[in-house]
Design a protein around this nucleic acid. Sequence first.
DNA 1: TATCTAAATGAGAATTATTCTCTTTTAGGA
DNA 2: TCCTAAAAGAGAATAATTCTCATTTAGATA
Lengths: 138, 138
Amino acid sequence: MSSEDIKNKLTERGLKVTPQRMAILEAIYNLKNHPTAENIIDYIKKMHPNIATGTVYKVLGALVDNRLVKKVKTENDIMRYDGVMKSHHHLYCMESDVIKDYVDEELDELLQNYFEKKNLPGFKIEDIVLQVKGTFNK
Amino acid sequence: MSSEDIKNKLTERGLKVTPQRMAILEAIYNLKNHPTAENIIDYIKKMHPNIATGTVYKVLGALVDNRLVKKVKTENDIMRYDGVMKSHHHLYCMESDVIKDYVDEELDELLQNYFEKKNLPGFKIEDIVLQVKGTFNK
DNA sequence: TATCTAAATGAGAATTATTCTCTTTTAGGA
DNA sequence: TCCTAAAAGAGAATAATTCTCATTTAGATA
């Protein structure tokens, strides 16, 4: 993801393009494994030591509100952030803090068909996310 | 769920039966919609005004460790608790803080078969929980 | 291009959920 | 009934996040 692409993402959403927002989005895209706010802060302070912690939280909030980033909650109640906006699921390792994205369009279609038939009365489904818990083989 | 049942649950897990633990488990079973620690504290303080906040957190931790209660992950950063231990999914309302349990054995079987065929290499699945996001019809 | 203003940032205090420490109490086995 | 490890109480400590308000800035407009 180039700087130009990141800039466009912000502009498309009507968000002002600031160095802080660029740095934070860049950090989320570069840091793998769904970084925490702290991971992001550590990362961007290398290049932008003057960025305020509060700004990072405020920007993260704005990015989530504008659907440029997703929040992911872990078993250990720490909030993490995910730059992959395409519908996808998560594999949670129960032995480490790894969360792996899992994209499976066949599964998505299966689920969509299932719930179309099922038609939960009184509930309109917008999105389905699987939390698949288990362990990665060593 | 009777007091006797709750008591048995604690005993089965080798946990000492204390009034605090009884009250907290009772609160989780009585409070609907996946209470937060704060909800639980407010609820039990009516009957047990002297219970310490720290004790509630400690007991919740012990209950989760002993699989008498589950933690529920939400998009927001407050932890919520669930006394239903049977495998089930959640319907998250995006317009309110309602989280409804969703039990569907047909779906569970479908998913199990799907992943048996799929056989994610390098990952051993223990549990699958669906976060179904949407809105309840008004 | 210069100006203007609402929006964004910085700095650090404030808040809030949760954990920790240490003393006292208690459940339940001997 | 006694004993002891486990649990609870009290409140301080911690850590993540939010808030406040003064200053700066992006980008729309003239």
